[in-house]
């Protein structure tokens, strides 16, 4: 379908379309809780290459990312809560990288990974591109809340690593990648949240109790109205985020954090209240409610928690004084 090629420029075999088209795809992937390596490869690895890759790195990977033959992923977390340049134990020297990254999406099927490692210069970190087939790379799969998506820890032991972007500029670059991924993830979360509202509505219309559809009880109606309100506000913020991303606007950090927090809150709410609306059936393995409840939490932490993005939001208002 060319989805993975959406924003990759035509000179690298992509479609050269805008982030608005990619946002639509993200929303639809979210709506069906698609079990595909899209966010890791498209929102993170592709964006990191587009932002920080040199010509050679782009030529090496973008054309196969565009066709979907290659899958990339991104690894910065090392466990123990939020990451910072100071907390990074992964290090590189002389083109060799060593360390351990945890809960990396699609690590076992990716052809390459972009890794954040500590640096003695600049902002304290550098990004590296590592081929997953390197002899110094090993993975250990990990069970997560959402088994429809694969995750693994990665151990690097003197693995060959190419610097991506400048030495000591990795932390700044990572933040820019995260802002871009946040907007796209917000659209995916919104799609999931919309699906939950739709499921809850359909179930409540068909399920009768005390002689009438449970959708006619205000306790249920108001719950669904709350979902609608949260989704509508999240959508408005997601539009603004997509606009900021697409025009590379100066307020992207604020717009991205706003979209991210709004969608995270909406999806969590809709996915838990969707189960509640379904009653006991919603808690059974047979029903699809669990997919969304699981996915909402995966997407809520995969590029940083709600709390982290709330902090980024306020920091962005302090930086720009826009608020």
């Amino acid at each position: 379908m060319g989805w993975t090629a959406t924003v990759i420029p035509e000179e690298f075999g992509g479609l050269g379309l805008s982030y608005l088209e990619l946002a639509v795809i993200a929303e639809e992937l979210g709506r069906c809780a698609a079990p595909v390596p899209f966010g890791s490869s498209v929102y993170l690895a592709t964006e990191a290459l587009l932002l920080g890759g040199n010509q050679e790195q782009k030529e090496a990977w973008l054309p196969t990312l565009a066709t979907g033959e290659a899958i990339g992923t991104f690894a910065y977390a090392e466990g123990g809560g939020q990451s910072s340049p100071k907390s990074l134990a992964t290090k590189a020297s002389g083109g060799k990288l060593s360390g351990r990254k945890v809960v990396v999406p699609d690590a076992e099927i990716a052809q390459f990974v972009i890794v954040a490692a500590a640096s003695d210069s600049g902002d304290g970190a550098s990004l590296y591109l590592v081929d997953m087939s390197d002899a110094g790379v090993s993975t250990e799969s990990v069970q997560t809340l959402d088994p429809s998506r694969s995750h693994a820890h990665i151990d690097f032991s003197s693995a060959s690593a190419q610097l991506l972007g400048g030495e000591g500029q990795g932390w700044g670059l990572l933040q820019r990648v995260l802002d871009r991924a946040a907007v796209l993830t917000a659209w995916e979360q919104l799609g999931g949240s919309e699906a939950c509202l739709e499921m809850a509505k359909n179930y409540a219309m068909g399920r009768y109790a005390f002689g009438r559809a449970i959708a006619s009880y205000q306790a249920i109606k108001h719950k669904l109205a709350d979902m609608y309100v949260k989704n509508t506000l999240a959508r408005s913020n997601a539009y603004y985020g997509a606009w900021a991303l697409n025009t590379d606007a100066a307020e992207l950090p604020l717009a991205a954090a706003t979209a991210r927090v709004g969608s995270t809150q909406a999806y969590y709410f809709s996915s838990k209240e969707n189960i509640q609306t379904h009653g006991g059936m919603g808690y059974t393995w047979e029903f699809d409610c669990q997919f969304y409840y699981r996915r909402s939490k995966l997407l809520a932490v995969n590029i940083g928690s709600e709390g982290l993005w709330q902090e980024r939001l306020i920091a962005a208002t302090e930086q720009s004084n826009v608020a």
Binding site: S236, V261, G262
Partner: peptide, 26 residues
């Protein structure tokens, strides 16, 4: 304003306020 609980609350309200503003733009 340096307290993280205060910042988290403010952020959520900002998100609502922005959501209302952009909804009216829509």
């Amino acid at each position: 304003i340096e307290d993280s609980a205060v910042r988290a609350k403010l952020a959520s309200w900002y998100v609502q306020e922005a959501g209302l503003k952009y909804t009216s733009y829509r």
